[in-house]
């Protein structure tokens, strides 16, 4: 399977930033500091359970 990480990242950024550009940047920064660089994932990126687990934890807080 592929693409789940990209979809989850987009979902997190959209829900947290609500279109605010400053918040988009802050959320991307938080993800990079967790070791998840949003720019490196595309719809073709392989699903990695370790990364998905980290993203699920963030989604639980939303």
């Amino acid at each position: 399977m592929a693409g789940k990480i990209k979809l989850m990242i987009d979902d997190i950024i959209a829900r947290r930033a609500k279109g605010n550009e400053i918040m988009v940047k802050a959320m991307k920064t938080k993800l990079v500091l967790k070791g998840i660089n949003p720019d490196k994932y595309t719809i073709r990126s392989e699903d990695d359970q370790a990364i998905i687990g980290k993203l699920e934890k963030i989604l639980q807080e939303l």
Binding site: R16, M23, A26, K30, L33, K34, K57, I58, E61
Partner: peptide
């Protein structure tokens, strides 16, 4: 600590 805080709020 900062990771946990950042997950829960948008304020800096």
């Amino acid at each position: 600590l900062m990771d946990t805080i950042g997950d829960k709020t948008n304020i800096t």
